[in-house]
Design a protein around this nucleic acid. Structure first.
Lengths: 137, 137
DNA sequence: ATACGGCTTCAAGCACACTTGAAGTCAAGG
DNA sequence: CCTTGACTTCAAGTGTGCTTGAAGCCGTAT
């Protein structure tokens, strides 16, 4: 069934081998099967790495990704805990889409006039400020 | 006209004062007017900070943001350089929206079955892998 | 035999975006 | 007077996500 070496996986996934070992270290990838001490991968790892990449591109942390992809492996994860996390992340993604569309508008309007103007930001200002208080509080 | 202290700006923008000083250091904010050695801000800084926040939320680096918001201040920035940057960032934002919608689908399908499955990722796999070669190359 | 390429581990290093701590200035209030 | 609170600078520290380097093993080719 032709298992892949870490080098082949890296090449096909567009990653460095160091990244793949790191993902194993932190639990984003499960411990790989070994053959004479060396890691051997099923092609399925490429699907998983694609999901990992996607998750990273939308701003998920490695730790969040680990929690999400644990469902890939075994039944060890409590169903509803996983669902709660996934729902939260889904909400985050929806939020991101909104922000991205706002940023898109700002850039488009600014491209019209040749620079980022304050006027372009009326829509941005219409947002409540999330409290990040801890300075004197 | 009641200029704001750094503390007031921080409170109203939902930031720490250290962040605001940092933004000045790295050029995301222009050097503030001083009054007896202390920074004083126009309310307009809040609009700017809102744009900065938005840009960060969609993954722009501080350095990219600096280049973008330089247009806020003076004419010092060559018009077409700025436009080139803004266009590139606009494309990045469009990309991000696509990714976010892919991730949304993956999460929605996974929520249906209770865990992240490999099947959920067919759409993800249909993407070409960007080469991040430098391992043996 | 030995050199080569690709693999291994482990510790240390790096870039980014801030935060924290030390040491000091200044104005208002008890 | 002197304390309080908010401000100042500057250097060093933090967390995240890897990368890099040293030292070594393994199999194949010269």
């Amino acid at each position: 069934m032709a298992m892949l070496t870490i080098g082949e996986v890296a090449r096909r996934a567009g990653l460095r081998t160091s990244a793949i070992r790191y993902y194993e270290d932190v639990g984003v990838l499960p411990p790989a099967h070994r053959q004479g001490g060396q890691r051997r991968y099923d092609e399925a790892v490429l699907a998983r790495l694609a999901v990992v990449r996607l998750a990273q591109e939308v701003g998920f942390t490695v730790s969040e990704i680990r929690s999400l992809v644990e469902g890939f492996d075994k039944v060890g994860v409590p169903r509803d805990r996983w669902q709660a996390l996934a729902s939260r992340k889904l909400a985050d993604v929806d939020d991101l889409i909104v922000r991205a569309e706002q940023m898109k508008q700002v850039l488009q309007e600014s491209l019209g006039c040749g620079c980022l103007t304050l006027d372009a930001c009326a829509l941005v200002l219409a947002r409540p400020q999330p409290g990040a208080v801890p300075d004197g509080a």
